[in-house]
Design a protein around this nucleic acid. Structure first.
Length: 306
RNA sequence: GGCGCCGUAGCCAAGUGGUAAGGCAGUGGACUGCAAAUCCGCCAUGCGUCGGUUCGACUCCGACCGGCGCCU
């Protein structure tokens, strides 16, 4: 029997790192990053990756594990995380999952369904064809092939179509089967400053630019193709537009700030509804005794077994 | 001081006599292998103010207020 794995989550720029680092200062900790953008190499500043100092001070897993062009997935991340958790424990270190990608956390706690392997060549071929079709057609196909998923969005329609056509089975049917990987029992520390987050985000955008975000993008645009997944990270599109002279610096800053706030809002919605609230301890970095609460949360797990 | 144009939600904006398009922002939500992605719902009893004409006015008329432009 093992204790629940500690997970520190919360909207972007909320102070998750501060909580994690202060724990790492007093316990042997391995941080496992649950962040769908920090996986990409070279996209450093705009994804708020841990700095060299932090990486040297505390072992990190899940950062810089993919090339910007790679197709990555929640499934892959969960496999990586399971391995890292087991490895940390075997070394007498305490794994702490830190990140804001709710879907990744779910892949860990509720294993994604096992899917028959897709023929990559056929998938690419189908994908290329679909790209040339109107979205309305995707929706119509999804409606026929896997109606349960038609109410979602294009990304989901596409996935449902690929699965149905290439495996002959509906994705919804596969989901009913459940996953084969083991569920990782967890306990959450939800870090969220509340209303001040909006200002935090605005300040962080400027801080990132001061740290050389635009220069980073200047370099990336030289050899990272526009289709690369990594460009989907919040703000990179706006900074690129500015670097290429298509957007003023002022507009870029306001747009990046807005998009980041919108992302934080979606994260809050996820954490509010998708997490088992009985396992959540909510804290604000601004509240009285923040660090003590973090430490209390850490200790609360020591006795508990699952 | 005179003349002209304009004044519609936090912002941009359509409507020009029949009972307020759309976009942005905001907000609530969804989410089972791209998730910092993708998608969905809500969001002006009121159109600068007051008065008039009309069965009916954001739409027409008048005055006033505010903005812009031109003229003196």
């Amino acid at each position: 029997m093992s204790e629940r794995v500690r997970v520190i989550c919360g909207p972007t720029a909320a102070g998750k790192t501060a909580a994690a680092l202060q724990l790492a200062a007093r316990h042997p900790v391995t941080i496992i990053s649950a962040d769908s953008r920090q996986i990409y190499r070279r996209f450093d500043i705009g994804t708020a990756k841990p700095g060299l100092g932090e990486l040297a001070a505390v072992p990190h897993v899940g950062v810089d594990v993919a090339d910007p062009m790679d197709r990555w997935s929640a499934w892959q991340w969960a496999a990586l995380a399971r391995e890292a958790i087991a490895d940390a424990i075997s070394r007498q270190r305490t794994p702490v999952v830190v990140g804001g990608t709710g879907f990744y956390l779910r892949a860990l706690t509720e294993p994604l369904a096992s899917l028959p392997p897709l023929d990559e060549a056929r998938r690419d071929q189908l994908g290329a064809w679909l790209d040339a079709q109107p979205r309305e057609l995707w929706r119509a196909w999804c409606q026929r092939l896997d109606p349960g998923r038609a109410a979602l969005g294009p990304v989901q329609w596409r996935r449902a179509i690929e699965t149905a056509l290439l495996t002959g089975v509906r994705l919804s049917t596969l989901h009913e089967g459940g996953g084969e990987a083991s569920r990782v029992p967890v306990r959450y520390l939800l870090v969220d400053p509340g209303a001040p987050l909006a200002d935090h985000i605005a300040q962080r955008v400027v801080t990132m630019l001061d740290a050389g975000w635009a220069e980073e993008v200047e370099q990336l645009r030289l050899d990272v193709p526009a289709e690369a997944r990594a460009w989907l990270a919040t703000g990179y599109g706006e900074v690129l537009a500015h670097v290429e002279g298509r957007m003023s610096r002022a507009d870029m800053i306001t747009r990046v700030t807005v998009r980041t706030r919108q992302y934080a809002k979606r994260q809050r919605t996820w954490f509010r509804h998708q997490l088992d609230q009985t396992l959540v301890t909510a804290v604000s970095p601004y509240e009285e005794g923040f660090l003590e609460r973090v430490n209390a949360w850490w200790r609360a797990h020591d006795e508990e077994t699952v």
